[in-house]
Design a protein around this nucleic acid. Sequence first.
DNA 1: CCTTTCAGTGAACGTTCGTACACTCAAACC
DNA 2: GGTTTGAGTGTACGAACGTTCACTGAAAGG
Lengths: 205, 205
Amino acid sequence: MSTRVEQKERTRRAILDAALELSDESTLAVLSLRQVAKEVGIVPTAFYRHFDSIEALGLALVDESFVSLRTMMRDLRRGDPALSDVVDRSVSVLVAHVHQDRAHFLFIARERAAGPPAVREAIRHQIELFERELATDLAQLPGTDAWSGEDLRVLSNLIVTAMVATAEAILGAADRPDAEKELVEQARTQLRMVLIGALNWRSKP
Amino acid sequence: MSTRVEQKERTRRAILDAALELSDESTLAVLSLRQVAKEVGIVPTAFYRHFDSIEALGLALVDESFVSLRTMMRDLRRGDPALSDVVDRSVSVLVAHVHQDRAHFLFIARERAAGPPAVREAIRHQIELFERELATDLAQLPGTDAWSGEDLRVLSNLIVTAMVATAEAILGAADRPDAEKELVEQARTQLRMVLIGALNWRSKP
DNA sequence: CCTTTCAGTGAACGTTCGTACACTCAAACC
DNA sequence: GGTTTGAGTGTACGAACGTTCACTGAAAGG
């Protein structure tokens, strides 16, 4: 158990946390190496001992954030997928994780649209993986036998899009519990509408 | 017809265009007054003759961008709303406008998530107005008699969310016509799924 | 025609930025 | 226990930033 690598890891974490916090006000793109260093309490040049650039830091934050999201996905899978309250449960899990990993969700919501191209691409790719996983889950549901793989993907995309929008809206409704409650109710209704549409859907041959 | 005010307006336009173009690489937040001035071909201080700050410029761009969007809305309303190909027509109009006003759509997509708070709020508000308009349009459709106003709003939100996501995806698929074609087909399918869900929906009393 | 107005100029300021380079000094290692 | 390693230090640099101020010169206006 070496104190040396422990200390390095601790500083690395401090840098990641500082970047996550500082980039909340505006964007990763305006985050300066010097701001981060000052927040962490190290001298600017020491930053290079941990990351090559702010962009490399951003990619590390993307990885970290999606670890959070995959934890959520695992939580979603728990429990009977055919249960009738699958909608309520899914939305609840989403809301819980948004609160629990607020900083990560905020980061992804922002950088997805405005980050450096490499960061944007990394996020886009992760969300696509998400859609694929959801598609295979949906394929397990009864009533989807006649569906084409293509239509499953399209449905997954719609659901993920709606849930991403819900997460963003909840993030924007911080400390306004009444507004959040409305958003949650809206998300549930939307999911039900989509599922009703899905149940009445028949893929073209 | 005074050459004086004409020239001022021409410079103002040049500033807006330069800002729109320059902010495509990253964000409004990293856009410097000096970059814009250089691009326009004026000295940095001359910028202040037209805007108080970069943020004020941003708000002007929001206004301008939403003029584009309202033009689109008017195009959408044209034609029989009960027509069976309402989905195809709506998606086509969206795609056409995304191409026609590419810079404005890119600007909104980016600043919606990452702009200065005032800019974000302005965009959010405009999108909400959009949803309301769509809700009143939907209320004209046959089969929605039994719907509550609340459910109409929720449905509008879902549709707008899906269309915003489609617009963003199309922007990301620039100069890849095959990918765009797929996205368009996906958007149509999603709209149909949602409408089928809507037609089978009954509001709670 | 003479005066006013004002978009654009140009120099200068104090900050902040990324990055270079040589350094320290304690933990890690042989 | 002497040597190596490497996270963090400190100085220094040129470049870019927002903003100030006094200015110019041509169009607008009486």
